[in-house]
Amino acid sequence: MKAVGRQGSATAGKLNGDPDRRPSYPGELRAKHATMSSKIWVKVAMAIAYFLCVSVAAFILVIYYVFFWTPDDPRNATSTELPNRTDCAPRLG
């Protein structure tokens, strides 16, 4: 009966702050730190990839607008086009 009481208190008393707690193996800690550092590198790599994708898209747009895009000249409008009026029509009544 005495062994059962010990066994129950031994499992219940081994909390994080208990001095009788068995120490962790270095392999477990090494594996834990390896997974944590790999997670950090994955996050950093994803942030860099996102930054590069956005920057490349912006660079392509700059090249297009600087070298290829020609804005429409409003002075060369044909007579079939309606004028761009910003005034509102007068109200009747």
Rank of each mutant, 00 (worst) to 15 (best):
D73I: 05
A57W: 02
S79Y: 14
P74Q: 06
A47H: 01
G8P: 04
P74D: 05
P19W: 03
I48H: 05
R91Y: 09
I63P: 00
I40R: 14
T35V: 08
V44A: 11
V56K: 03
G93H: 07
W41R: 14
A45R: 06
G13H: 06
K39N: 15
Y50V: 08
H33F: 15
Y50S: 10
E28Y: 08
G13R: 11
F67N: 08
Y65L: 11
G5E: 06
A31T: 13
C88Y: 00
P74H: 04
A34Y: 08
E81R: 13
T35P: 01
F59A: 14
N76A: 11
P71H: 04
N84S: 14
R21Y: 01
S9H: 01
D73K: 01
T80G: 07
P23C: 01
V44W: 02
D18T: 00
T11D: 03
A47D: 00
N76E: 09
A34L: 07
A89P: 00
S79M: 14
M46K: 04
P19M: 07
L29Y: 04
G8D: 03
V54Y: 08
G13C: 06
A49N: 10
I63N: 06
S79P: 09
S38I: 04
L52G: 08
G93C: 04
P83K: 10
W69M: 03
Q7D: 08
S38M: 14
H33A: 15
M46R: 12
E28H: 10
T78G: 12
V44N: 05
T78E: 11
R30G: 13
P83C: 10
K43T: 12
A3T: 04
H33M: 15
F51W: 13
S37D: 15
T86V: 05
R22P: 05
Y50C: 13
S24H: 07
F68N: 06
G8C: 10
E81N: 07
P83Y: 13
P74R: 07
W69E: 07
P83F: 10
S37M: 15
G13V: 01
P90N: 07
P74I: 03
F68Y: 09
T86L: 02
C88W: 06
V42F: 12
D87R: 01
D72I: 11
N84P: 10
A12L: 09
Q7A: 12
P19S: 03
M36K: 14
S55K: 01
T78N: 14
E81F: 12
L92V: 04
A49P: 00
T78K: 12
K39P: 01
A47I: 08
T78R: 09
T80D: 11
S37P: 00
T70Y: 05
A77F: 02
F68T: 06
L61H: 11
V62S: 08
Y25M: 03
F59D: 09
M46C: 12
D73F: 02
E28K: 03
T78D: 12
P23N: 10
P23E: 05
R91K: 04
A12V: 15
D87W: 01
V4Q: 11
R30S: 15
A58D: 15
L82Q: 10
D73N: 13
F59L: 13
M46F: 04
G93S: 04
P19Y: 00
G27A: 08
G13E: 06
M46Q: 15
Y65P: 00
D18F: 01
I60W: 09
Y25S: 03
C88L: 10
C88V: 07
R22E: 13
G8K: 15
S79E: 14
I60L: 14
G93E: 09
S79C: 11
